[in-house]
Design a protein around this nucleic acid. Sequence first.
RNA 1: GCAGGAUUAGCUCGAAGGUCGAGCCCGCGGUCGAUAACCGCGAGGCGUUGGUUCGAUUCCAACAUCCUGCACCA
Length: 945
Amino acid sequence: MPFELKATINLPKTAFPMKANLPQNEPKMLERWEQTGIYERIREARKGAPRYILHDGPPYTSGPIHLGTAMNKCLKDFIVKSKTMAGFDAPYVPGWDCHGLPIEIKVDKELGGKKLQMRPLDVRAECRKYAQKFLDLQRTQFKRIGVFGRFDRPYATMTPQYESVVLSTFFAFYEKGFVYKGLRAVYWCMHDETALAEAEVEYENHTSPTIWVKYALLDDPAAIDATLAGKKVSTIIYTTTPWTLPASMAVAFHPDEEYVALESGGEVYIVASKLAADVAAKCNLTDPRPLAHFPGRKMERLNFQHPFLDRTILGVLADYVTMDTGTGVVHTAPSHGAEDFITGMKYGLDATSNVDEKGILRNGLPEYNGQYVFKANPLIVELLRKRGALLHSDKLEHSYPHCWRCHNPVIFRATEQWFISMETPMPGGAGESDTLRTRTLEEIKNVKWDPAWGEERLSNMIQTRPDWCISRQRVWGVPIAVFLCEGCGKPLNDPVVNKKVVELFAKSGADAWFTPESDTILPAGTKCPHCGDARFEKETDIFDVWLESGASYLALMDDEPDYPWPSDLYLEGGDQYRGWFQSSLLCAMGTHATPPYKGVVTPGWTLDEKGQALSKSRGNDVDPVDISNRLGGEVVRLWVASVDFREDVVGSEALMLRVAENYRKIRNTFRYILGNVGDFSPQRDAVPFDQMEALDQYMLRQTCGFAADVRNAYEEFAFHKIYHRLNHFCIVDLSAFYFDVLKDRLYISAPKSQARRSAQTAVWRIGEALVRLLAPIMSFTCEEIWPYLPTVAARTQSVHLAQFPLTAEILGDAAIPTTDSKSDEEWVSLRAVRDEVLKALEEARNNKLIGTSLEAQVAITASDPVYSLLQRHAGELRYLFIVSAVTLAQGSGNGTGGVHVEVKKADGAKCERCWNYSTHVGEDKTYPTVCERCSAVLKELESQA
RNA sequence: GCAGGAUUAGCUCGAAGGUCGAGCCCGCGGUCGAUAACCGCGAGGCGUUGGUUCGAUUCCAACAUCCUGCACCA
């Protein structure tokens, strides 16, 4: 009985669904991974393999994740998974940064006025709850996008273990002499009597007096310019804060700007040239005559007279002096300005504040002493007028910092803070000049910065950064657990006591510092080594959160002692050059004298389609969790892989949709593979490489090239190259070329024929290679595909336990070379001819000569070497071009590449089975609608039936 | 203002001192045996201004725009 023809076609068949349903299926996959303990199983599988440590930078636990955080975690996941599949033991311990002001502020707002009556311990408990809530949320969200890691035991900066390491890191600095207590100008709210962080300052309008004040030069003016010899010379400063004049220690000039000496009314005034006219007008300098011009640097270290105090004022230089308002000369009070303070440090000026915590001026002249700063303003103006130092006064409405809570204007005030000195000589180092700063700069050179500009950027920052102020007057953080002498105020630094406090923290957490438990730490009889006093109190400041997160790898190693020092890689956004990269580096320098990382990678920022930074307030943010729920976490991952993360990247709904389209293409490529190997058993059916069809051999070599490119790209974290190479490979090489050509052979040949088995062998090996090469990025889909591929012995249960394919696995035999340049070049030529044929077919199609290409036969005219090449492949050309017949002629084809293609209607009739046209249709008596090729296949099938 | 980075097709990218190129998108068509698929053809571009060079989108310099961090007016 004859076969029904349609039933003899080997159409693809697979249970692997075309439609992914990612939002529904991914959570099921996550559950399976959770149940099987995929992360732990990977650890077991890689036990003893070379370690690769990507150390996670802790995100802040004050909200849900956004696209930037998602990208960050996906990139880390790509790296960890690709290292794992390259054979490394690459553990990943995610971390969270839990302390700090933003949470405290939010909790403040929730608590309202209640906070003022609460004990620090209770406020801390509220903050902890808040941080834990978002830690849990973010953990769920990171898992949702397919990130693998030690999520059940992450590191968190608020755990007792971590807090104890923060403290021991500080003590390492402290005991080695890096730490000092000193003054620093900070924002201060006189109403609330507290220091404020930048984030707690809001700018509002405020009316200030403006005054122009004369500072007389004490030194010989000839030193500036010979023409000034013997003259009475002064400079003029401008300020909006007269109350800071009692703290005036210096006058600052810009080193490179030009200044002018103006003579008027028998006196000489030095001001910036650019502002001279303005100053002369405001100060009523009649008939000003320029005597000399000179750069500001001439004024350095000259001495001036304070306008009303018995104090010598130093001429200093500062780059921040500007030429748009004032006089180009800036009165400098180190205790009352951030920049003034830095300049003061540089020139060794006194920064003692004579303004108390309530804003009252102390230790001053009777005219203003004991007055509140803003009340003192007019009094000081009057004093200046009396002393003949006031040249002009006015009022100015300008934006001025105010307290975010009470909305009163704030001031800068020098207060005592803890510092790590950048100028500390390194212990065991080469001497005084071998400091924390210089050694750090040296060590930066030993790190691999990616992109390379990171080295310069961080070096510039370390070069110019001030000493590290590590103290904060806050509640939610790790306390600087040091005992202070009640007699002289000096901090105790006893390694034995220090160790006991660290142990206390490890046991009971940093909260212990706020409980009586910590009072018992100090051994009885402890005396202050400075004054002998036996009474101590506990420091109430907490650490800068950057010191905390900077200690993260130290904390991780405390937990996992066999992790290597240093780690292999840190990966965070460019904002961390100021933050974590820097604080981690300094913490490592203080404890190990080497950096904590071998390499640092910096992704760019996430922007919208207009190049604006993504933010909730702008309303242009893209929520990765929302994308996961609607399009799939895999789409988020693929998007991350699609962009060059070293630059700023664009994220948008439209891009996600586009990536989702691409996903479907890749998925369909896999589906075709799976559909065509359904009846293929590698052990039984695989064809050895040397017996495969030339096209199949060629495609396996192409796959080797693809695999090599992909592995190289993983090596250099160039995921976007993988994404684009993958698309190209799937679309151009596989779908449009190989798989299209292969349909005839796979569908039409006898199922067990060598020709079909050869194709199946290649398709199967390609699938095996692809699924493993892509698993680090397409973690969900590759895991889904894994069990659908033909079973082979010794196969891991999860694709994530497998390793990248070796070329031997792709070709089936290690002895086969992965390239055959002669043959591969021939295939390049054949594909070029194919392109010409397709163009000619399209033309014929447009002329209504043919519809499907099988209705055509083509005649190709070519000259050598192409002609001989085609001649050698004459038998397979019709399949390569998917036409019914090909004839060759030698001659000078005048088409592209010396090839001319002519398309004609195919001879004969359409074979009902294979749709090719043949003049032999009708010859088979049993199957009169079939061509000679199908006739043979059907005979074979019948003999087997 | 300082430091660092970016600018190539509508989008995402690649390459290179010598007519730039890929995929997607878009337009047109084919197919109906990968079918919520598949195949073909086509259209479309190097931020601005100078310089080096036989030749510059590429190297150099300015400018513009955007991003990140720092500083921010005494």
